[in-house]
Amino acid sequence: MDINMDITKDMFERVPESEKDLNTIVRPSETYWQDAWRRLKQNKLAMFGLYFVLFITLLAIVGPPLVKMFRGIDYATQNYKYSNQPPNSKFWFGTDMFGRDIFVRVLYGARISLTVGYAASVLNLVIGVLYGGISGYFGGKVDLIMMRIVDILYSIPMMIYVILLMLIFKPGLGSILVALAIAYWLSMARIVRAQILSLKQQEFVLAARTLGASNARILLRHLIPNSMGPIIVTLTLSVPSAIFTESFLSFIGLGVSVPKASWGTLASEALEGLQVYPYQLLFPALAISLTILAFNFLGDGLRDALDPKMRK
């Protein structure tokens, strides 16, 4: 054995307990949200998504008034002198057959498409969280009946109902929102219910109940906050699907009324002239695709960051 050379007797002194740190390898503790944010920041695609979403949202808010101020035109300004211009330094995205600036129309379209995306998601959230929360929290017969209803609605082609609803309401932004909200809260309700069901078995709920907390308090203070992760992910991913659905509706002629235009309407309008003026389709299509892509990246990133099972 080569126990080496320089072992001296003093090395066999006892090390006092106070000099030892038992927990040296424990990493500094972080809250759930700090941890999630750190993980999200490491995800380049998700951060791209986040920045793009912020950028396009900002653009939709400040873009139109700026254009109005500096160039004095808006989405409806027509100028036949410049009809069907290809992209150039004056008209960045070109013009359509009425000589309307496609760049300006895409900017205004962002307002409509994003409003639909955000507002429909918030409506879904409210309906879904209430429905799923009540169903999951009360359980038993209530849950059975409520979920049976969801099951039945699930097996119905929702797009068809959105179309029928769109026919009943007057065309416009409000109608689209209501139709989307009526049709698309189902998955949110299911996810919230599943979360609540698994959470309410846990000790902290029993503890709260032992302390005499009311049903409403337990639901609002304990259960829903603890289901926030999956809810946020579903919410993020429902924005692009609402934008998607809206563009689909616009495309088959059920969107906002002219001369207003969402990105879907712009794409639809461009279809007829596709052979000659493909750029008229390119920009609205790019706007839709990039935005949906960004929200999806962000949603996927959030899912990875917020899933405690994946924490290492």
Partner: peptide, 22 residues
């Protein structure tokens, strides 16, 4: 796959049509 789930089908359709037919 990411493009496939993010680009709406009518955009894919028109692109395909533009490239392969037109």
């Amino acid at each position: 796959a990411t493009l496939g789930v993010t680009v709406p089908s009518f955009v894919i359709a028109t692109l395909l049509m533009y490239v392969f037919s037109v």
